[in-house]
Amino acid sequence: MRIRSALAVTAAAGTLAVLATAPAQATEYSSALKIRGVQYDAPGPDSNNCSTGNSKSEYVTIKNYSRTATVNLKGYVVRDATSTNKFVFASNHYLQPGDYVKLRGGHGTDSDANNVVYRQNCNFLWNNDKDTIRLYKPSGAHADTHAYTKYDDGDRNGYISYHG
């Protein structure tokens, strides 16, 4: 759940060199689908009440970064750091090259035209202070992973972008 970074220290010929490695959220996997961003802290006071709450305003955006391949999301899995909260794309949802989908909390009607899939669950998926978002291929292989803390959110709007 923490952003991990390693510090390597080497000594050669009396010289001390310090090298910082990239944080865990920079890990790259070979997948066309990647996590584009996360609204980890829904605007307003948190309430997972299905009729009056704001869990529908919490979402993760998944984008197809391929230039040529259409990807079917069926079987892809999104999990949090503890893997106790997860969502499996159970239906066909095709992403054309450059297209994206927002996986939202709450109840609603999935729509290819509106690029949205609902979890059909009003509980929040992401922690407001820190968490890890994991995207898995139907085979179980990692597609993408990003860890965050609220301190990574420079403008403090509850949204963090990845992959430009």
Rank of each mutant, 00 (worst) to 15 (best):
121 N>W: 13
86 K>W: 01
132 T>V: 06
81 A>L: 00
140 G>D: 09
77 V>W: 03
33 L>S: 00
130 K>E: 05
110 D>V: 10
59 Y>E: 06
62 I>K: 04
11 A>H: 09
144 D>Y: 13
16 L>V: 05
64 N>R: 06
119 R>Q: 08
23 P>M: 00
55 S>P: 06
110 D>E: 09
21 T>L: 14
130 K>S: 10
20 A>H: 08
81 A>K: 03
138 P>V: 06
86 K>C: 00
117 V>Y: 02
97 P>G: 15
16 L>Y: 11
156 R>Y: 05
113 A>F: 12
92 N>H: 11
69 A>V: 02
7 L>Y: 08
32 A>W: 15
83 S>I: 13
104 R>E: 08
150 K>Q: 10
96 Q>S: 13
11 A>W: 08
53 G>I: 07
81 A>D: 10
45 P>V: 15
125 L>G: 05
89 F>I: 09
59 Y>K: 07
109 T>H: 10
61 T>S: 00
150 K>E: 06
153 D>R: 01
86 K>E: 09
96 Q>R: 12
27 T>W: 11
72 N>D: 14
143 A>H: 05
146 H>L: 05
113 A>G: 11
1 M>W: 02
90 A>V: 04
126 W>G: 07
116 V>Q: 13
26 A>M: 14
69 A>I: 09
35 I>R: 02
88 V>M: 08
27 T>S: 10
84 T>G: 01
49 N>R: 10
104 R>T: 09
125 L>T: 13
30 S>H: 09
27 T>H: 12
119 R>E: 02
3 I>P: 10
39 Q>L: 10
105 G>Q: 07
15 T>N: 12
147 A>M: 01
43 P>M: 01
86 K>M: 10
51 S>E: 02
48 N>V: 07
24 A>I: 03
93 H>E: 08
162 Y>E: 09
111 S>K: 03
112 D>R: 10
102 K>N: 15
164 G>A: 12
78 V>H: 01
134 R>G: 14
156 R>K: 09
37 G>S: 01
110 D>R: 09
107 H>A: 00
39 Q>F: 08
39 Q>N: 13
68 T>E: 12
67 R>D: 00
4 R>H: 14
26 A>W: 14
87 F>P: 07
6 A>F: 07
1 M>I: 02
95 L>G: 00
153 D>T: 05
131 D>Q: 05
110 D>K: 03
140 G>A: 00
